[in-house]
C-alpha cells in the first residue's frame, strides 16, 4: 500500500484528472440504467425539444431523451471499444511475443503479413471490410480488433526483442525452460509497463475509430445509443447555434484526453526521463 500511495503522490495534476474522469465514466457505464431518467430507445416527447426540467438536455431528432441516450451511450461505446481493444491486445501480444521469442521463420512470416496489412491505411481497410461483411456490432469488433492487433504486434515484438537479447533470457533458454515459461515469466513481466501504456493508446485509437465510423453511420447501428451516431443524427442543430449535439462529441474527447494523460504519465515513468 505504501508504494501505491507514493505513486499517487507523485502523479502530475493531468494524470490525477485522467484517473478521476476514467473512474466517473466507468461508474456511469455500469450504473447507466439507474442513472438515466428514461430508456435509451423510448420516444418521450417532440423532436428537438429545448433543455428543460423534464428533459435536461432536450430531446433528439426522434424525440428521445438526450441525457438518457448520453448515459447509455457511455455504456455502449465504452464496452464495444474496450472489447475490441482487449481482443486486439490478446492477438497482438501473443503473436508479438511468439515472433520475438521464436525468431526465424515464424517471425519472418508474421512480420511480413503485418507489413502488408499495414501498407493499407487502417480506416480504408475497415471501410472495405465493412462493405463486404455489412455493419453490425460483432463485425465491427472483429474487424477493428484484427486490424488494430497489427499495431500491438509491432510494439510487443519490438519490446520483446529488446528483452530477448538480455542475458537472463539466454540463461533461461540454456537452462532448458520451455517457451511458455520464457514468455510468461521472463519476458512478459518486463514488457508489462510499455504494454499497459500501449493499451491506453490503442483504446483511444479504437474508441475514436468506432466513434468516427458511427458518426459516418457505419459503426454502431440504431437504435443503440452511441455518441458518434448521436452527433450525426442531431448535427443540424449546430447550424442554429445549439451546442447539444456537441455534448456527445465532448464526452468522447474528454475520455480520450483522460486516457491519454494517464498513458503519458505511465510512459514518462517507464522511460525514466527526468524532469
Amino acid at each position: 500500500m505504501t508504494t501505491l500511495t507514493r505513486t499517487l503522490k507523485g502523479m502530475p495534476p493531468t494524470a490525477v484528472f485522467g484517473v478521476a474522469i476514467i473512474t466517473i465514466y466507468v461508474l456511469v457505464a455500469i450504473f447507466a440504467p439507474m442513472l438515466a431518467p428514461y430508456s435509451e430507445r423510448a420516444v418521450v416527447g417532440g423532436q428537438y425539444l429545448q433543455w428543460s426540467a423534464e428533459h435536461w438536455l432536450g430531446t433528439d431528432n426522434l424525440g428521445r431523451d438526450m441525457l438518457s441516450r448520453l448515459i447509455f451511450g457511455a455504456r455502449n461505446t465504452l464496452a464495444i471499444a474496450f472489447f475490441a481493444t482487449a481482443l486486439a491486445f490478446a492477438i497482438g501480444t501473443v503473436a508479438g511475443l511468439l515472433a520475438a521469442t521464436l525468431g526465424g521463420m515464424v517471425d519472418q512470416a508474421l512480420s511480413r503479413f503485418v507489413d502488408i496489412i499495414m501498407a493499407v491505411p487502417g480506416l480504408i481497410f475497415i471501410l472495405l471490410l465493412l462493405t463486404i461483411f455489412g455493419t453490425g456490432v460483432g463485425t465491427l469488433i472483429a474487424v477493428i480488433a484484427i486490424l488494430d492487433s497489427t499495431r500491438v504486434f509491432r510494439l510487443a515484438r519490438a519490446v520483446a526483442l529488446g528483452i530477448v537479447a538480455m542475458d537472463f533470457v539466454e540463461a533461461a533458454r540454456v537452462r532448458g525452460e520451455g517457451l511458455l515459461w520464457i514468455m510468461r515469466r521472463e519476458i512478459l513481466p518486463n514488457a508489462a509497463a510499455p504494454l499497459v501504456a500501449e493499451f491506453g493508446m490503442r483504446f483511444c485509437f479504437v474508441f475514436l475509430t468506432i466513434a468516427s465510423l458511427s458518426f459516418l453511420g457505419l459503426g454502431i447501428q440504431p437504435p443503440l445509443a452511441d455518441w458518434g451516431s448521436m452527433v450525426r443524427e442531431n448535427a443540424t442543430l449546430i447550424t442554429f447555434g445549439d451546442i447539444t449535439p456537441l455534448l456527445p462529441a465532448a464526452a468522447i474527447a474528454l475520455i480520450t484526453v483522460a486516457v491519454n494523460f494517464v498513458v503519458d504519465w505511465i510512459l514518462h515513468k517507464v522511460s525514466g526521463i527526468k524532469d
Binding site: 468516427s212 458518434g228 462529441a249 480520450t256
Partner: peptide
C-alpha cells in the same frame, strides 16, 4: 488534448 479530439468534434 488536440490529438484526443475526434475530427468531427473539432470540425463542428
Amino acid at each position: 488534448t488536440a490529438i484526443s479530439f475526434p475530427e468531427f468534434f473539432v470540425a463542428y
